[in-house]
Design a protein around this nucleic acid. Structure first.
Length: 862
RNA sequence: GCCGCCGUAGCUCAGUGGUAGAGCGCAUCCUUGGUAAGGCUGAGGUCGGCAGUUCAAUCCUGCCCGGCGGCACCA
């Protein structure tokens, strides 16, 4: 009997798969059912981590399973290769970002290949390949022609030290996340993609994505933030300020509460406020006060509402005599709606807080059910629930929704406004002042302005000799690269030195994978065959941005006629993180890596000590593996000790895929032992052809387990409950061990062979190397990777004899064995004749006997 | 504050309107020619709490408690 040796076995089978080129996707054939399995492509950091192992193992299970089910499978891999880490490496270590990136790719490719993934490597590309980003420039110009790209002055977060624009999430407590320098607001000419044109469709489309997690759909819906309401202008009651003669436009979702209006407010950065500030230092001082407040959530939450009465007044739209004061208020956001509101304190908490502070009127206009109009008052809590409108002239007596409609109708009839839908979603700012990104393919010409390059001048390639030694945009400070000729007038021009957000790179790569050689950005026939992606697997952290941008770009490219689908990802699965215990030194609190820690049990308690010094360590919380907590485990070290299959098996078995999984040394050891026990079962099976299957009670018992396991594992894979499927295989192995080959009759040996044949195929998506070795050991035809998925025989999953628990008044009091499918009346007779049951019923009168066929008997007695 | 997810053995998790399961850990024993290992057996569970529906609830419903995540002055 030979021990299982993954170090020899695993590379052997990887070579066999590569030699046979088994994972190359077949050509698009209309008749052949296709399956596109994709995991979010990695950033080439240079090192594989456990999160990658989990992500790509999950996708690989699906890809291998679908292949076994006869699908033409596309399972590609590439690299999300532009971005800041390469620039940082360049700045810190003086290396070239391109060389650094491609070196990292080479290292990670070999690590990923070691994982034994069923990937079609012939389609690999990196987003920093000119062959890829050149095609991106190509369709970017198409979108520009369609009017989906525009330039606009916009206020951005500027890090004065790193000399770059920061995203909102990169600003922590008003400071740059890397430099720690106070962030400045700067106005820059920025490039935008008109994602808001698709806001409605992006919301509506969510309804069709029935194989996406509800959570992600909800997050996207909230992010887009559609609200329906009324946009209208207040006319001035007194002197109109210059520039605002037409009135002050506000937006509301509660036009039903217009008669509860108390004041009108504008944001501190509203043009009206800025204009007033120019003339009045008190206004300027107030606005400065508002801006002082930090931007962090905590500060916003606790910030007190403050306001400034401008002295201006507007007239109520339904009553010209009714004057409302105009305030500047810090709680009003300029970038939502019109940056101005009317306030109804009785029915909005923010307005109420403000009104109470400044002594403004509070008039209730929505009467809650059961309240008396004569006595109902609003105290310190605004009423936002359902009710009937009152004190509101023509709206009186209406419910909220009809009142909104009536108010909108009246405003529209008066011509001072209209029903409007607004979105929280902003257009997508895609320009980055970075050197390591996809150049925007335009030039700036003094005579012609911004001019798109003709497509025969694409790709616009990054120079090889950028200087990354200083912060800022290395492309912009390159001495010659930006010198160009205007394609329109032939005069001198300057290249655009902004590059595209890396989210642009990742918003269409899945389409390029369908034909990586195409002369056009996308080969329509290939895309139409392969898209949508049938199963996309990745982290929940991309729930909004990446997935929303990809859905938008797919629609834009579809409208451009480059592909047909509207939704890129038919199925989405978001996996949990890989976590690990943390360990730290008692005195210093310094984190210690798991590989330097020994775990032992003393006095019945789990304890840790340093392998190096022997000192006792504190076992800390279980947290996401991260460099900062030093609680990472290097995949290659695990592969070295236990093999790839054990590592794959463990990350797949420990938790439901959508939940976090806790890596542990004992857990992977358990997986390793399972691998060995599986091998031992195969290895103990006599070589040579198996005897024919024959009817035999013992053999039938095993066969029933086999067919039940095929059914259960298949269902588990179909529903992404991989850990559950593996649990069933653990149970199956235990069952198999009840039928040792050494003492088996020919009938049992035959049943064992059937069991092993199914088992090899069932484990093949999870532990593919072991499955090949096992399949070869029992004389399977060809490689298991090409073997068809096992089919279960429903008839065999049924037991001939059923053991039915017998309950008396709902409590288990015994059991009986009956033939499967026996009618309830027959079962009842047997139960009542059973002496043990009869003893339990002594002194009781039977009221009712419930028999659930093949399951249970319950006797109600009293 | 709002929304969502989770709570089953010491730990990590399966599971089901009808007999409570796996791996790891723990205990006992066997093996010492699979040996930086293998195997047998076992202990261990008011299925977070309380109520309701039901012949029967770990499962369905409601409320509560605890943990985690997302969003949050969006008019």
């Amino acid at each position: 009997m030979a021990r299982y040796n993954p170090k020899e076995t695993e590379p052997k089978w990887r070579k066999a798969w590569a030699d046979a080129d088994v994972f190359r996707a077949g050509p698009p054939q209309p008749g052949a059912p296709k399956y596109y399995a994709l995991e979010m492509f990695p950033y080439p950091s240079g090192r594989l981590h456990m999160g990658h192992v989990r992500n790509y193992s999950l996708g690989d299970v699906v890809a291998r399973y679908k292949r076994a089910r006869g699908f033409n499978v596309l399972h590609p891999m590439g690299w999300d290769a532009f971005g800041l880490p390469a620039e940082n490496a360049a700045m810190e270590r003086g290396v070239d970002p391109r060389g650094w990136t491609y070196d990292n790719i080479a290292r990670m490719r070999s690590e990923l290949k070691e994982l034994g993934l069923s990937i079609d490597w012939s389609r690999e590309f990196a987003t920093c390949d000119a062959a890829y980003y050149g095609k991106q420039q190509d369709w970017f110009l198409d979108l520009w022609k369609r009017g989906l790209v525009y330039r606009k002055e916009s206020v951005v977060n500027w890090d004065p030290v790193d000399q770059t624009v920061l995203a909102n999430e990169q600003v922590v407590d008003g400071r740059g996340w890397r430099s720690g320098a106070p962030v400045e607001k700067r106005k820059l000419n920025q490039w935008f993609l008109r994602i808001t044109d698709y806001a409605d469709e992006l919301i509506e489309g969510l309804k069709t994505l029935d194989r996406w997690p509800d959570k992600v759909r909800l997050m996207q819906e909230n992010w887009i933030g559609r609200s329906k309401g009324l946009r209208f202008k207040f006319g001035w009651a007194g002197q109109a300020p210059a520039g605002f003669v037409a009135g002050l436009e506000v937006y509301t979702t509660r036009p039903d509460t217009l008669f509860g209006a108390s004041f009108v407010g504008v944001a501190p950065d509203h043009p009206l406020a800025e204009q007033l500030a120019a003339a009045d230092p008190r206004v300027a001082a107030f606005i400065a006060e508002c801006r002082k407040g930090g931007a962090s959530e905590a500060e916003i939450e606790t910030a007190e509402k403050i306001g400034f009465d401008t002295g201006l007044t507007v007239a109520h739209p339904f009553d010209p005599e009714w004057k409302l004061p105009v305030w500047i208020a810090n709680f009003i956001l300029m970038d939502y709606g019109t940056g101005a509101i009317f306030a109804c304190p009785a029915h909005d908490q923010r307005d109420l807080d403000f009104a109470r502070k400044y002594g403004l009127p509070v008039k209730a206009v929505v009467l809650p059910p059961g309240e008396d109009a004569a006595t109902f008052e609003v105290g310190t809590e605004a009423y936002t629930g359902p009710g009937t409108i009152f004190h509101s002239q023509f709206l009186d007596g209406l419910e909220i929704e009809p009142a909104k409609a009536a108010a909108i109708t009246r405003i529209e009839a008066d011509g001072c406004g209209e029903g409007a839908t607004v979105y929280r979603l902003r257009d997508w700012g895609v320009a980055r002042q970075r050197g390591w990104g996809c150049p925007i393919p335009v030039v700036h010409c003094d005579t012609c302005g911004v001019v798109a390059l003709p497509k025969d001048q694409l790709p616009v390639v990054l120079p090889d000799d950028m200087d990354f030694s200083k912060p800022g945009n290395a492309l912009a400070r390159h001495p010659t690269w930006k010198n160009a000729v205007c394609p329109d007038c032939g005069g001198p021009a300057t290249r655009e030195t902004d590059t595209l957000d890396t989210f642009v790179d990742s918003s269409w790569y899945f389409a390029r994978f369908t034909d990586t050689e195409a002369a056009e950005p996308i080969d329509k026939a290939a895309a139409d065959y392969w898209l949508p992606v049938d199963q996309y697997v990745g982290g929940i952290e991309h729930a909004v941005l990446h997935l929303l941008y990809a859905r938008f770009v797919t629609r834009a490219l579809s409208d451009e006629g480059m592909l047909s689908v509207r939704e890129p990802f038919a199925g989405l699965f978001t996996q949990g993180m890989v976590t690990h215990e943390t360990y730290k030194r008692v005195q210093s609190g310094e984190w210690v890596e798991p590989r330097e820690v020994e775990i032992f049990t003393e006095a019945g308690k789990r304890q840790a000590r340093s392998l190096e010094t022997g000192e006792a360590l504190v076992i800390g919380d279980v947290e996401k593996m991260s460099k900062s907590k030093r609680n990472t485990v290097a995949p290659e070290e695990i592969f070295e000790v236990y093999g790839v299959d054990a590592a794959r098996l463990f990350v797949l078995s420990d938790s439901p895929p959508e939940r976090d999984t806790q890596w542990s040394a004992t857990g992977v050891e358990g997986a390793w032992r399972f691998v060995n026990r599986v091998w031992n079962e195969f290895d103990s099976q006599p070589a040579g052809p198996a005897p024919a299957l024959a009817a035999d009670p013992k053999a039938d018992d095993l066969r029933a387990a086999t067919h039940r396991t095929i059914k259960a594992v298949t269902e588990a894979i179909e529903s992404f409950r991989f850990n559950s499927g593996i649990a069933r295989m653990y149970e199956f192995l235990n069952k198999l061990k009840e039928f040792p080959a050494e003492t088996a009759t020919p009938a049992v040996l035959a049943a064992r062979h059937e069991a092993l044949s199914a088992f090899a195929r069932l484990i093949s998506p999870f532990t593919p190397h072991l499955a090949e070795e096992a399949w070869a050991r029992i004389g399977g035809e060809g490689m298991v990777v090409s073997a068809p998925w096992p089919q279960h025989d429903e008839a065999l999953t049924q037991d001939a004899v059923r053991v039915l628990p017998v309950q008396v008044n709902g409590k288990r009091r015994g059991e009986i064995s009956v033939a499967a499918g026996l009618e309830p009346a027959e079962v009842e007779k047997i139960v009542l004749d059973d002496p043990e049951i009869a003893r339990r019923l002594e002194g009781l009168s039977i009221r009712k006997v419930i028999v659930v066929k093949d399951r249970i008997v319950n006797i109600v007695a009293g």
